[in-house]
């Protein structure tokens, strides 16, 4: 291992004539909580999508956990230790909390259809492993008492925790959180920050967020992007004090 969870160099993305990313360099050490900030339209989401393998870059190199994510289908990237939550709630709304976790676990199960129908040992082993893991994850995320609730019935902040729980089922080595605390109240935000600190042990976490207090509380380093290019990469305090960053934020109304 290189010691870097993410190594990206000269990442470019063009949509037709529009250039969304103009050669971004990013290195995130293993085990870090790294922030990605910038005004709306800065290219944060595009960079996120490229790191997760959902969007292919137009140029540059991207390596996540040593994988060339540009060359792999997204669900392979996901199965090999990359987790991601979405800006808007991304749970399976019609299913219960436990079913949500089950959906995420099928990729790890090894039993066949016949073994399942016959309730064979292979199936029982898989299900037992799932139950153990699900119980632990639900406990971690504070969802244990809600396991039979339909996802759509959960409070907004709880749904975001469920999205994290779904990802944790596959024990990702790196977890991308897209504006996780947007829309949460202060109490929910505080709870969520505690959850992120808790699950950060043994994994790398990358957060896109507009909430600078949350970024400051969690991140060791942030990358500030403006207009498809990186401006600065530093600790949250120093990065936010950087004159270009101040100018970029003052020049827009993006800090919502």
């Amino acid at each position: 291992m290189t010691g870097w969870a993410v190594e990206a160099a000269g990442v470019e993305k063009r949509y037709g004539g529009v250039t969304a990313l103009k050669g971004v360099d990013l290195r995130i050490p293993e085990g870090a909580i790294h922030g990605l900030i910038g005004p709306n339209g800065a290219g944060k989401s595009t960079l996120f999508d490229i790191l997760c393998g959902i969007t292919k870059p137009s140029g540059g190199r991207v390596s996540v956990l040593g994988m060339d994510v540009a060359a792999l289908p997204a669900h392979h990237v996901a199965r090999r230790g990359v987790g991601r939550t979405f800006q808007r709630t991304a749970t399976f709304r019609d299913s219960t909390v436990r079913e949500n976790l089950l959906f995420a676990s099928y990729g790890r199960m090894r039993h066949s259809v016949l073994q399942r129908m016959a309730r064979a040992p292979a199936w029982r082993e898989d299900m037992a492993a799932f139950e153990t893991r699900a119980d632990a994850v639900l406990e971690t995320c504070g969802l244990a008492h809600l396991s039979d609730q339909p996802a759509a019935a959960l409070a907004y902040g709880t749904q975001r925790r469920l999205a994290v729980a779904v990802m944790l089922m596959n024990d990702p080595k790196i977890l991308f959180l897209d504006e996780p605390v947007a829309g949460m109240n202060d109490a929910e935000t505080a709870e969520f920050i505690a959850l992120v600190r808790d699950i950060a042990r043994g994994r790398t976490i990358v957060i896109v967020e507009h909430d600078m207090a949350a970024i400051g509380a969690l991140c060791s380093e942030v990358l500030v992007m403006v207009d498809g290019a990186q401006v600065v990469s530093d600790t949250p305090e120093r990065a936010l004090a950087h004159p270009d960053v101040v100018a970029a934020y003052l020049g827009t109304d993006a800090d919502d």
């Binding site: 669900h75 987790g83 979405f86 991304a90 959906f103 990729g107 790890r108 199960m109």
Partner: peptide, 25 residues
């Protein structure tokens, strides 16, 4: 009852979420 059937339900509810749950969408 089947894994594939469950995955169809998952994809119909949320394709992107399913993708990041490791489902071959």
């Amino acid at each position: 009852r089947s894994v594939k059937g469950q995955q169809i339900l998952a994809v119909s509810q949320n394709a992107r979420g399913a993708l990041y749950s490791g489902i071959n969408v």
